[in-house]
Design a protein around this nucleic acid. Structure first.
Lengths: 256, 256
DNA sequence: TACTGTGAATGCTTTCACAGCA
DNA sequence: TGCTGTGAAAGCATTCACAGTA
């Protein structure tokens, strides 16, 4: 009924579809790589191939953030990078806290500021007294009881939950109490949060199960014989960008 | 044009939407937890709340795999578990290989068979000679040059790429050559694969950037003042399942 | 001429709402 | 009566295809 608003309340000028936001982050990564290689201009076709989407989708996505291309030419890499960073809110740096310093927590703490820019891990928490003080990836581990004060002091805006499932909800509650409004959850648990808090989850078992589903489907519909079709035409050719798939929040160019 | 087929070619009886598959995996996890608690029967309402979706969506999702409920009563937990496992292809066990034994690779190797069932990690690969033979999580590390023979011997069906970005495509090519048709990619790279291979990706930086976007939006549209609204009505009440959100392949019940 | 930006068309996904059954 | 299963409606997302422009 209200065709001019965006559901977020105010009739803000930017109502970017959720799906497009995820892809913008991918474009940004690809563009950064291009910039490093000294590429200054790129067409929607080139960028879309590099990002594993089709060019129409890419142009539509970019149109949500404004019109920064030049017809007949393409986009300036730097301009696009700046604009996507602006839209994704990467101008202000976000400090990340990781809770749960097991195997995964270690991996995250050492991930080194995350590919490129914007997300320094600046605080670590656990319950294990043996871990206290010992730095992991250069950052000391704090006790989870200090979460409120440490998060306030370090201006944490993003909390990452890497605890065992049983602890995840409690940790989540504490993060929320400490004022954290963005949470990335690796524990296989459905978190309960107030409406003001944004949660994303990464569930490795679910990812594997989705792969398993497709594997099973393939096995079922396989005509017969053991020799599966393997049209392996190696050699990074992007000649005919046929079937340039992007399944779900997944994505990988199909080569042939 | 072909209204009876499912795009996969044959007019198979089960054309389960991609989005539903991801949720079925979540339902399975929740149901397994219920089974452990001795719960034998569950209604769509109860299960949907526990899984963080609304009940209509849950019922629709379950309808794709068949009709296993009893009107007026609900679903039998065991029956549902069996059926979802069947559809997801979890009856045949899938062996997983992890390539790249850095921090993340360690974490994955130690992930202990993945929550519950079906995905034993049985092979590890790296290029670093220092790692060879040393077991990680009880599994010896092999050199990547042996990938074909080891994958064949261990009947690997799923490959997990946890290498630095620069190595990811080469590793992917090798996995594909070794006959692996399901790949879970943690490297921030768009992989090129033949059509027969299914890729899913997990990109931590992208996840953080999506959170950052929502954070920024919130900050923009905040009326004024520093005191953000924090309607923290703690105490795991699911009384009014208002606004029971599930954003993207993300998901978390909104509590209030 | 070559490539962007975008309405309109198509195709998925979610939600509604209710018929049907234990 | 209470809850499932499902057509039909509504809402998003993707793709098409072409007008517009440097």
């Amino acid at each position: 009924m209200p065709p001019l608003t965006n559901g977020q309340g105010a009739l803000s000028p930017r109502a970017i579809p959720e799906a497009a936001v995820a892809r913008l982050a991918v474009y940004l990564r690809v563009l950064s790589g291009m910039k490093e290689q000294g590429i200054t201009t790129v067409s929607s076709e080139e960028l879309s191939v590099a990002a594993g989407v089709n060019s129409a989708k890419l142009r539509k996505d970019l149109s949500y953030i404004g019109t920064y291309g030049t017809r007949g030419v393409g986009y300036e890499v730097e301009v696009l990078i700046d604009q996507i960073e602006r839209v994704l809110g990467l101008t202000r740096e976000q400090s990340v806290a990781v809770v749960g310093i097991g195997n995964l927590g270690h991996a995250l703490a050492n991930y080194g500021g995350f590919p490129g820019r914007g997300f320094p891990v600046t605080a670590l928490f656990d319950v294990d007294p043996d871990l206290m003080g010992v730095p992991v990836g250069g950052i000391p581990v704090n006790h989870i009881d200090d979460i409120a004060s440490v998060c306030a002091a370090k201006e944490i805006t993003i909390g990452v939950i890497a605890t065992p499932p049983a602890a995840a909800q409690v940790v989540c509650d504490r993060l929320v109490q400490a004022g954290v409004e963005c949470i990335l959850n690796f524990a296989p648990v459905v978190l309960q949060v107030p409406e003001t808090v944004e949660v994303r989850k990464v569930d490795l078992a679910v990812e594997l199960q989705i792969l398993s589903f497709h594997q099973a489907r393939r096995a079922d519909s396989a005509p017969s014989g053991e020799t599966a079709p393997q049209p392996r035409s190696n050699g990074r050719v992007n000649g005919s960008p046929r079937h340039s798939v992007e399944n779900r929040p997944n994505g990988a160019v199909v080569r042939r």
